[in-house]
Amino acid sequence: MKFGIIVFPGSNCDRDCLWAVEEMKQKGEFVWHDSKSVANYDALILPGGFSYGDYLRSGAIARFARVMDSVKTFADKGKPVIGICNGFQILLEAGLLPGAMLTNKTLKFICKYVNLSVENNTSPFTNKCEKGQILRVPIAHKEGNYFCDDTLLETLLANKQVAFRYCDEKGKINAETNPNGAVYNIAGITNKKGNVLGLMPHPERAMKETLGSTDGKIIFESVISYLKKR
């Protein structure tokens, strides 16, 4: 399987994502933001970082990069696209995922391990997980406070688009286990079709025991398994 990792000016998790893909014994390549085509990849990753300095709003300028037209076409074909952290913010700004990001309720940049509850284990990104499985994966962001209105939240729930929610180590979900103020403790969502995932936590940073967790691997394993069956 070949993963394309989109590199914007200011991306800084691109190398980590490539390393994670190679750690899973898959091929990965960087794709410059000015590229015209992404057709020869099986899956795409929009990595974390600070594309265009986070000017105006996180992801607001990156969504107009030339490569984004082909990312849209790629997603429309039902192929898997993962946006991690800044990548999630870009997918929201581009309208590939619904909702928007606000500044963390604490106004602080939060960099720490959190626990995620797998809410939907039927997506291409979670099919190897048990429903309710708890994943320990780090977050590192200042604009990760996911916002949607009540109507959109109802739609997300009805379509099983909520992929991950912030919880404690036992799976308890409440205001105390919500690091950034996100609506419904949302840490990650998919589009309606299920082939586009955005998540604030960094699975590519949880691939080895020495990093503190290997729970990020299951997301990559799920995508690879999905692609093999496709």
Partner: peptide, 11 residues
């Protein structure tokens, strides 16, 4: 209206 403004709240 209805969107949380953490900066405004803190100020």
């Amino acid at each position: 209206d209805g969107v949380l403004d953490p900066q405004g709240t803190t100020v």
